[in-house]
C-alpha cells in the first residue's frame, strides 16, 4: 500500500509541474489527465483490503473490498472524459483564432 501512496504523490507532482512549466496547451491537458488518473488510483487503493475479493457477491466470498470508493472512481472517469473533450474543443477554437498553441504568444496577442 505504501508504494501506491508514493506513486500517487509522484504522479500528482509530475502533473502539477507540467501544468506550471510547459507552454503548450495540449501538454497542459495531458498534465491534468495524469493528475486525474493518480486520484483515481488513490481511490482504488483506499478501497483495497489484503485478501479481499471483488465486490460481486455471487457465492463463496469471505472478505470483500470496499465498494463505495470504486463507485466514486467510476463516476470520476466518465466525467473526466467529457471535461477532456470540452478542453480540446476550446483548444481548437483558440487555435483557429490565434494560430498558435503557445500560452505566452496568446497572452501577448491579447495586449
Amino acid at each position: 500500500m505504501n508504494s501506491i501512496y508514493a506513486v500517487v504523490g509522484i504522479l500528482i507532482c509530475i502533473g502539477f509541474y507540467t501544468i506550471l512549466t510547459k507552454t503548450n496547451l495540449i501538454k497542459m491537458v495531458i498534465g491534468i489527465n495524469i493528475i486525474e488518473s493518480a486520484v483515481i488510483l488513490l481511490l482504488v487503493a483506499l478501497s483495497y483490503k489484503p485478501g479481499g475479493s471483488a465486490p460481486i457477491l455471487d457465492k463463496g466470498y469471505e472478505l470483500v473490498v470496499d465498494p463505495i470508493p470504486q463507485a466514486l472512481a467510476l463516476t470520476a472517469i466518465v466525467i473526466g472524459a467529457s471535461t477532456t473533450a470540452m478542453m480540446l474543443a476550446l483548444i481548437i477554437k483558440i487555435f483557429s483564432k490565434h494560430h498558435t498553441l503557445d500560452v505566452r504568444e496568446i497572452r501577448n496577442l491579447r495586449g
Binding site: S53, A54, Q70, L74, I77, G80, T84
Partner: peptide
Amino acid sequence: VLQAPDVALVEAVVATGIT
C-alpha cells in the same frame, strides 16, 4: 490486481479508447 474489475473496464474503454 487491486480487485476493482468495474473501474478497470471503464478505464480500459474510456481513458484508453475514447480519450
